[in-house]
């Protein structure tokens, strides 16, 4: 464990909690892509099946349980409890165009052709593009609530911090995992234009609105 991975995990946890609280407190999931949240639930489920097979640490197990629990709670709030506030018209990204290629790639490019390892690889590839429906929805509506931008900032920051963690591990532990690094770079790059808007607008107290 190093400071980048720890702050990365905490940033990820913050993002998940911010989103859950936003929906729960405002009793609304306006502006939130339910499709992205379903993809994240799939990412956690396929990645954390090792909860059933191996114990690494209290921290590892508790974080995985929290991530999975919050992900399904968020999906439940969006599609069941507050479904009247779900903006399905703008949440129109064709996720099958993500899941199918990612599934194929996971079978072709992985470290070990075993069930759990292919699922892990699938979850790594899927996570790198899982935010696309959400970013697509914001581009369609042309704006995002400020709390949603904080959620996205923490979510984007977490994998950027993981990139620093992998640089640290390469330098000090001469360890690197090409699959996780490439997917992490793709994932972080997808947030770049959002990061620019967040830093130049939201941090200056303006609302995040895209040129329509």
């Amino acid at each position: 464990m190093n400071v980048f991975r720890l702050t990365g995990d905490l940033s990820h946890l913050a993002a998940i909690i911010i989103l859950l609280l936003k929906i729960w407190k405002s009793r609304s999931c306006a502006g939130i892509s339910g499709k992205s949240q379903i993809l994240f639930a799939i990412v956690f489920t396929t990645r954390y099946l090792d909860l059933l097979t191996s114990f690494i640490s209290i921290y590892n197990t508790s974080m995985k349980v929290i991530y999975i629990g919050c992900a399904y709670a968020t999906v439940y709030l969006i599609y069941m409890k507050f479904r009247a506030t779900y903006d399905g018209n703008h949440d129109s990204f064709r996720v099958e165009f993500l899941v199918v290629p990612v599934g194929g790639l996971a079978v072709l490019v992985n470290h070990d052709f075993s069930f759990l390892e292919i699922l892990w690889t699938f979850s790594i590839y899927l996570e790198s593009v899982a935010i696309l429906p959400q970013l697509f929805m914001i581009s369609k509506t042309g704006e995002a609530e400020t709390i949603t931008t904080h959620y996205l900032f923490c979510l984007g920051l977490y994998r950027a911090l993981y990139l620093l963690n992998w640089i640290w591990r390469f330098y000090f532990e001469s360890f690197f995992d090409m699959i996780a690094i490439v997917a992490g770079v793709v994932q972080t790059v997808l947030y770049c234009d959002f990061f620019y808007l967040y830093i130049t607008k939201v941090l200056k107290g303006k609302k995040l609105s895209l040129p329509a």
Partner: peptide, 10 residues
């Protein structure tokens, strides 16, 4: 087993 050294990462 631990051929992939980042099994401890979330």
């Amino acid at each position: 087993e631990g051929e992939r050294g980042n099994k401890d990462e979330l």
